[in-house]
Simulated assay, not measured.
Amino acid sequence: MDSYKKAKDILSRIDKPIINASKEKEWEDDTVHLLPNFTSEEREKFIICDDIMVLHVELIEKVKEADRPLCGIKYGESISQDILVPFTLPLHNLHYVINQAFGFTNSHLHEFTLTDSDLEWVTNKKVKNWKKLIGIIFKNPIRDEDVDFWDDDYTGGNPKKWMRSKYTGPDYNKCYEEGYRYIREEIKDLKVGTTSLNNLYYEFENNPFALNEAIELDNIFSLDESPREPISVFYSNLDDYIKDADKHDDESLLSQPWIDGFVNELEYSYDFGDSWSFLITAKLDIEYLLKDKRVTVKAVKDAIKKVCTFARPVIIAADGYPLIDDVGGLKGYIEFLKEIENGNEELNSWSSSKDWKKKIDKNAL
């Protein structure tokens, strides 16, 4: 349980940068890995631990090859961003990161979900396991709709500055009603009339598999390339974590049961009308960017220092122009870009009012 306590106590020790000496030695000569060998003087400047991962966030819908130059795509098959993030960033705050990075304005509903294969693995295709994971991995399926808007406190001013405040740490606000104990009390009398996971969609108005956004990245992503542990071990560990969490007061961060990260990918959906869907892939190195000469080692180390110093995610690579709200999804976006190229003054004025620019901006965050 020592690793559990250490990980969950990070935020209470932000004035003492955490450097893993064994990791530092292991990666000392590695110019690709995200554990650079900082000097002691550099460490003194850091206000959070240096545990950082790269998230490759890419639009799932592919852009036709003929339309890629129009969209500013040079390297992949769709619009994407590669973002350095702290391990301790919750999914709720990652939502604002993705919105800001891709040009959205938090104007629509969103959700995070597992891939089908990961959902099957973690539930072992059993409804009883899904129910056990409510409040830990999954949101409360019978929650009031207002819970999803608990952090929407924008009252005016610069919306980009407001969104930036949502993902700038090292402390992150969390919703009490997304806490484990609150949710378990809410669902104590929950009756489920099916033994089929697929049929759960018909049991609730909310998506029963939407992820609890209080989860921190290191509690959902696993960067271990070795085979996954047996599901029985996963649940045995989870039982221990639940018992340990029960020892702590409601106000403590440790009252939320720890969970061992088990996925390499997540899906993020935004605006269920325009249907923007992204695949988020976690990475611990940037070799895939270096080989295409999209970044330099120096640029990545500088970006890591920014993340550590300002407790804020940093974009290190971008492929494609920013998206825009209310454009009609990818198909509408491509038509929008064609009209912009043709000098459509009405659309130029409309996009300008949304502060949209046909320019890749790696400083968007």
Rank of each mutant, 00 (worst) to 15 (best):
Y182M: 01
W150N: 03
N99P: 01
K132S: 08
D319C: 03
D285H: 08
Y333K: 06
D326M: 09
Y182Q: 07
Y235R: 01
K166T: 03
Y154E: 02
E203P: 04
W150R: 01
Q256C: 06
A66I: 14
A101W: 00
I315E: 00
P230R: 05
L330P: 01
E61S: 13
Y4D: 10
F46T: 08
K8Q: 14
D271G: 08
I52F: 07
L223Q: 01
L330F: 06
K16L: 11
A7C: 01
L289M: 10
I18E: 15
Y154C: 10
I134D: 03
Y288G: 04
L337D: 02
S255Y: 10
S275M: 13
E177F: 11
N363R: 12
R43W: 02
N93T: 11
I47H: 09
D319V: 01
N363Q: 13
I18Q: 11
L34I: 11
D82R: 02
K132T: 06
N212A: 11
T123C: 07
G72A: 04
L84M: 09
E44W: 00
D146Q: 11
E41M: 10
G169I: 02
E44T: 10
D82T: 12
N37K: 15
G343W: 04
I315M: 06
L254I: 07
L254H: 12
T296A: 10
H110C: 09
D116N: 13
K293H: 12
Q81C: 03
Y176D: 15
D144S: 13
F138I: 10
G320T: 01
E58K: 12
T195H: 11
W350E: 13
L119N: 07
E44A: 13
D15A: 12
W276T: 05
D240W: 00
N206E: 13
E339R: 15
T281Q: 09
I98M: 02
S222E: 08
L55M: 09
G156L: 09
K188V: 11
N342T: 04
A214Y: 04
D152E: 14
G332C: 09
L11W: 07
I18F: 15
E213S: 13
T309E: 14
G72M: 03
C308Y: 01
T31P: 14
E335F: 05
L133Y: 07
P313F: 04
G329A: 05
I183E: 00
K362A: 08
W258T: 01
K301C: 09
N129P: 03
L223S: 09
F102N: 01
N237Y: 02
K74M: 07
V314A: 05
G135M: 01
I280N: 02
A21S: 14
M1F: 12
K25R: 15
E203D: 08
E26M: 14
D151L: 08
E213M: 09
V97S: 03
F104P: 00
N99E: 15
T194V: 10
D361Q: 10
P227H: 07
I324H: 06
S236T: 14
I79R: 00
K132I: 02
I48C: 03
K8C: 08
Y167S: 05
L323Q: 05
L284S: 14
D326N: 15
L11D: 12
F149Y: 15
R13I: 09
D325S: 11
K301T: 12
F221A: 00
S165N: 14
Q256V: 02
N20R: 13
E225C: 03
E205F: 12
S269C: 09
K188R: 15
V85Y: 03
N199F: 06
K191S: 11
V127C: 06
W162Q: 06
